[in-house]
């Protein structure tokens, strides 16, 4: 693995990102950057493009135009993707936690977490040890040999977080991590994310949990109709939003 020597404060930088599904323009000229150790929350109504944005950043969707840079290096330059080998290398820099967990049901918790790093050539014993530590951190001590179907939704999502962390990413993406959970289970997942924030893990979180976004983020982005309507520090953003559209959206959540 080559060490990146260039000093760039932003782990992720996106410039002028565009994405359409046939004739529907989902992302129109989105730009943002995430600094090391910071947490960014992205909020907005359904269909505003916030999930698509995360999926573009993690290469699950192909952007039509714009730039995506990791650590100052182009993964996508003017809508042109880097060669496959270097995209694979960029992939090791981020992790993604899905709304529906997407654990591998036929694998034990341990294998879910440890297989990918081992396939990447990491030492099996070290990976297993790391997995045990991660499970402990997630409050899932002793669940190594359980299967996903034996776990609650909240536990499954915490395994998914451990699985993403086992790859030792520099930045972690969350795509509505609590939207598929019963309200009483969201707390345990938000707690571990908050714990990661306290440890200065760099994260981008697409969420509908406003109080959580306010508490955990350094920067909040509000998207609607494929554009960033407003962004700012959480106190200013939630306390005194400047755009009428933002105020309207936040009012709906306070009821």
């Amino acid at each position: 693995m080559t060490e990146n020597t260039s000093v760039s404060p932003s782990i992720l930088e996106i410039r002028g990102l565009q994405k359409s599904f046939s004739s529907l323009s989902v992302l129109k000229d989105i730009s943002l950057s995430v600094d090391r150790g910071n947490v960014m929350s992205i909020i907005g109504p359904s269909g505003s493009g916030k999930s698509t944005l995360l999926r573009c950043a993690s290469f699950l969707e192909t952007a039509d135009g714009g730039d995506i840079l990791y650590d100052g290096q182009y993964a996508v330059h003017d809508g042109v993707y880097a060669p496959k080998a270097s995209l694979n290398h960029f992939r090791t820099r981020f992790g993604l936690v899905f709304q529906n967990f997407n654990l591998f049901p036929h694998y034990s918790v341990m294998k879910n977490i440890s297989e990918a790093p081992v396939l990447h050539g990491q030492n099996k014993e070290e990976v297993r040890e790391r997995a045990v530590q991660l499970l402990k951190k997630m409050g899932l001590e002793g669940k190594e040999n359980s299967y996903p179907c034996q776990l609650s939704g909240g536990q499954q999502q915490r395994v998914a977080i451990a699985r993403a962390l086992a790859m030792q990413p520099e930045i972690l993406y969350f795509d509505e991590p609590t939207s598929a959970l019963d309200p009483e289970l969201t707390g345990e997942v938000l707690k571990v994310i908050r714990q990661l924030a306290d440890e200065n893990m760099t994260m981008v979180i697409v969420t509908h949990e406003m109080a959580f976004a306010r508490a955990v983020s350094e920067w909040v982005i509000f998207m609607d109709g494929g554009v960033i309507v407003e962004e700012g520090e959480p106190e200013q953003f939630f306390g005194d939003p400047s755009q009428e559209r933002t105020r309207q959206f936040l009012r709906n959540y306070q009821q």
């Binding site: 290469f59 699950l60 992939r91 997407n102 591998f104 990918a116 699985r163 993403a164």
Partner: peptide
Amino acid sequence: QYEAAEVLG
């Protein structure tokens, strides 16, 4: 399942 595997490399 495909997407999770892809992101994990």
